[in-house]
Design a binder for these strands. Sequence first.
DNA 1: GACCAGGACCATT
DNA 2: AATGGTCATGGT
Length: 286
Amino acid sequence: MASVYETRLPVRDYNLATTMTSGQVFGWEQIADEWVGVVGGRWVRLRQETDAIIVRTAAPQCEWSWLKEFLQSDVELRAVLATFPKDDPHLRAAVAACHGLRLLRQDRWECLASFILSSTKQIVQIRQIVRTLSERYGAEVTVPAGQPPMFAFPTAQRMATLPEAELRECKMGFRAPYLLGTARRIVAGEFVPESLRQLPIAEARAKLMALPGVGEKIADCVLLFSYGFPTAFPVDVWVARALSTFYYRGRAVKPERLRRFADKHFGPHAGYAQQYLFHHIRTQRE
DNA sequence: GACCAGGACCATT
DNA sequence: AATGGTCATGGT
């Protein structure tokens, strides 16, 4: 197969814009009807067509499995949705409102770091911090002629060398020591991101929660968005409110209990259900 | 200006 | 085990 700069990934039930704006990834930029980001150190530009995603890279590629993995474009969404409870009007409404919403499969460190930065931050602010970090400390990636410069998310190795004050200058506030502490544990070999892949979800979650700045919620984001544990179910303030309203008559229920409810109620792809509920309530607000 | 944001952590009960 | 305060920063 010849190396090429462009390809066309056939997709079904895939809404790129909905997926990119659903609070999973923070490093992608929309330019007109296209999305520009970095995957595995490669500059990538994506454009949605009805039944395909048009891909442009800066360097010729001889295969695209790395991108299909990120986009999860081979996942049959219908098969996932078919596992949802049939008699749940709230989930049904969310699915109807968010056609083609997908879970991506992100780089583990970038996902972990991004969500350590996410606590009590709005998504627009998380995006701003991630962009600043990348521009200041990330590797510059090759871009096509005429394109603006682009930077990868900084590695844990680079991050671990930085004084806390420099991280605070990226506006991450009290999260700086958390991020720094986690980066240093990775560099020291005390936390090996790849080692979680084959573990039972409870053990993987426990290892993540042992990191500074990582509690239940952030651990579940990382388990869902970068490790692909299908039942990981992040309970943030939005999801907690929605579940409480929909299934507990507005009663306040603790996140750990909500997670157990979700496991039972939403089934083997509870994480997908979570993403539909989250995106739906967030886009219906006001 | 008050209130909130894809929370975690620590000190008290 | 269960609350309550605290931690930065910016949007609405």
